[in-house]
Amino acid sequence: MARRTVEEHAAAIAELLAPALTPTPTVVPLAGARGRVAFTDVRSPVDLPLFRNSQMDGIAVRAADVASVPARLPLRGTVPAGATQPPPLDPGTAVRIMTGAPVPGGADTVVPVEETSTDGTHVVVHRGRGAGEYVREPGSDVTAGEVLVPAGTLLAPRHLAALAAAGLDRVTVRQSPHVAVLTTGDELIEPGTRPSPGQLFDANATALDAACAEAGAQVVVRERTADDPAEFGAALARAVAGADVVLTSGGISQGEFEVVRQVVGPTGGWVGSVAMQPGGPQATAVLDGVPVVCFPGNPVSTQVSFAVFVRPLLRAAAGLPPIRPVPLPLADDVRGMPGKRQFRRGRVDENGRVSIVAGPGSHLVAAMAASDVLVPVDRDLAAGETVEVIPL
């Protein structure tokens, strides 16, 4: 059985997935753009503000008319937000104005309402304001043609608000990689159903679906099959037809009912092992030009394999920032396993030290849930040693 190092397998998967994960653009409505990455610079089609408007509820005046206070001026009506452009303001007069309302021609300042008093026909301004105060000029935020959101921006609500304010209702983003998830095993049943003796709930479908979404990908096919080569082969054909990348779990060890190995092996794919724990059995293939990456079926093995080999590639394709290893000290001694890299599950304490959570077993899903980092262990490590942990 062929065996690779972790680095060799990571490089092989990166090469395998590269053609399928070439970034491509797609246009989406703003309502579906949060968390996506802008593919190109987005330029504003308009000046913002769109027109000269008031920053405050107050009184629009000429600054020269309130240079000496108190100043008593006749009121010439009210300009509400949403009004059309009001007539010009005559010298020596004032007009009530609401926040966001267009400022009349001739008026060059807005006095906040708190700094005035009125008897209904006249207003008394108690504090003078200079020209331009509380008046928003068109283009003072951004001018037409200026970059509003740069390419590569991870779109958050604040970015979408800026696009909407400029009148845009859609944006060009990186296409999310389309992934198919196939889980296998006669023993697997859907969570929420009642298990019979010997049956297990399928955790891997949920884990891979959520992990793909977190990595910026979209799961477009999700199926579970029994350990039947014909059934799995048909599901694999549907997955290849509908996705950029296919991920499978289970069926690649050395037992008698290893359905993925039975179907993928004869296609010329690689079926072997990686010098790691958990996640030793691994396989890859290309079917009709679509890469297939096969993980072992134990739940922790599947999650570790995804985090180590596939998550970085999906995130890069989606334009998301990489999740980089973090150097942290160990809280306790850790014993390694000769010839294999262990990915122990760990938790960072309030002092920034990493404690190992439970044992190395690939079935310990509760321990995985209680962890927030993977701790690569190539040898015996002593408490206090610094290790490069992988955030989960």
Score class of each variant (00 low, 15 high):
101 A>K: 07
319 G>V: 00
286 V>N: 04
30 L>F: 10
314 L>A: 03
97 I>Y: 03
55 Q>R: 15
263 V>N: 01
150 P>E: 10
250 G>W: 01
142 V>Y: 06
308 V>Y: 09
87 P>T: 08
14 A>S: 14
284 T>I: 08
158 R>Q: 12
136 R>D: 11
104 P>I: 05
290 V>S: 06
94 A>K: 12
107 A>Q: 08
364 L>I: 11
282 Q>Y: 12
90 D>Y: 06
21 L>D: 08
177 P>R: 02
288 D>R: 14
134 Y>I: 03
285 A>Y: 02
265 G>Y: 01
223 E>H: 14
390 I>H: 12
303 Q>P: 09
197 P>M: 04
197 P>N: 12
367 A>L: 05
371 S>Y: 04
328 L>W: 01
11 A>L: 14
24 T>Y: 03
380 D>G: 14
255 G>T: 04
145 G>C: 00
357 V>H: 10
111 V>M: 08
138 P>D: 05
188 L>W: 08
282 Q>L: 13
281 P>C: 05
69 V>L: 11
310 V>C: 08
72 R>W: 05
177 P>K: 01
92 G>E: 06
308 V>E: 11
224 R>A: 13
263 V>S: 08
324 R>F: 00
86 P>V: 04
30 L>A: 11
231 E>M: 10
44 S>M: 01
317 A>S: 12
78 T>G: 07
268 G>I: 01
21 L>R: 05
247 L>G: 05
244 D>W: 03
292 V>A: 05
307 A>V: 06
65 D>F: 03
152 G>L: 00
251 G>D: 03
371 S>E: 06
283 A>T: 09
100 G>K: 06
28 V>E: 01
257 F>M: 10
295 F>Y: 15
51 F>K: 12
147 V>Q: 13
14 A>T: 11
29 P>N: 13
349 D>A: 01
185 G>S: 08
358 A>L: 06
238 R>N: 11
97 I>V: 13
12 A>R: 15
353 R>A: 15
178 H>M: 15
251 G>V: 02
357 V>E: 05
357 V>L: 07
242 G>D: 14
152 G>W: 02
158 R>P: 07
65 D>N: 15
272 G>P: 07
245 V>R: 04
4 R>I: 01
69 V>Y: 06
265 G>A: 11
75 L>H: 02
387 V>Q: 07
283 A>G: 09
35 G>C: 00
41 D>L: 00
296 P>D: 03
350 E>V: 14
135 V>H: 07
16 L>M: 02
88 P>V: 11
385 E>V: 00
335 R>D: 10
25 P>T: 08
132 G>A: 11
382 A>P: 09
3 R>S: 11
334 V>E: 05
104 P>K: 00
158 R>D: 13
165 A>K: 14
2 A>H: 09
